[in-house]
Simulated scan of single mutants.
Amino acid sequence: MKFPRFAYLLPVAALVLATATACEDEPTATPQPAPEALLVAHTWRLDETRLDGQVTGSGATVKDRYTWQFIRGGAYHQMLTADNTMTHGSWQLADKDVTLQLIDHKGELLGYTIKQLDASTLKVSWLRGAEVYENTYSAQ
């Protein structure tokens, strides 16, 4: 029995078809903005405070509630919502973008571990002694 001339192309065609079908089934990942882009895209309002997992303030009950505005290039503004008092400092991301480092208006270095950062929420935590503090900010 003689094979047609195109018979040798059948395995190649099957492979191409299988590859094309497999590619269609794979979900396409939506690229997430870089952490720096998310930080500078919004003003962040402090909406919840926790100490060792327990809520200590939420919404208007947060003591000394404030907002952060991060500026590309490393500056930030902090404004107390009670009286609009504004202070300024500098910031940077470290440790592969999981640590937010601030130098406040007094020159003190503050380090926060970023627990969540997306288009609507910034959640940071830090240790003071044996106590774990956590603040949640919402994008404005």
Score class of each variant (00 low, 15 high):
A7I: 09
L93H: 03
Q101D: 04
V16T: 00
F3Q: 12
K63Q: 14
G89D: 07
L110P: 06
S138F: 12
A20T: 07
A37T: 14
S120M: 09
S58R: 15
G74M: 03
T113R: 07
P35V: 01
T61F: 08
A139T: 01
D64N: 12
A7G: 01
D25S: 14
L46M: 03
A139S: 07
R65M: 11
G111N: 15
T49A: 05
Q78H: 05
L39E: 06
W44V: 02
L46G: 01
A94C: 02
R50M: 09
T99I: 04
G53K: 10
A94P: 05
T67C: 04
L110E: 14
S58E: 15
N135Y: 09
Q92E: 10
P4R: 10
Q54S: 09
G74V: 02
V124I: 13
V12G: 09
L17I: 14
A75H: 09
Q101C: 02
W91Y: 03
E134G: 01
P11R: 00
Q78K: 13
R5H: 09
E108T: 14
D118R: 05
T113P: 00
T49P: 02
T28F: 13
Q32S: 14
T43Y: 01
T67P: 05
T85R: 14
K63L: 14
R128M: 13
P31C: 00
T19E: 11
R65H: 07
L80A: 09
Q69G: 07
A139H: 01
T99H: 00
L117T: 03
D83E: 07
N84Q: 15
V62S: 03
L110T: 08
T136E: 02
T30Y: 06
V55N: 04
L102A: 02
A29L: 13
F3V: 13
P35W: 04
T28D: 15
A37H: 09
S58G: 08
V16W: 00
A13P: 03
I103V: 03
E108Q: 15
A139L: 01
C23G: 12
L109S: 11
P33N: 10
K63I: 11
T81K: 05
T61V: 05
K63F: 13
K123M: 05
S90E: 00
G57Q: 06
T99D: 00
L80F: 13
G53S: 12
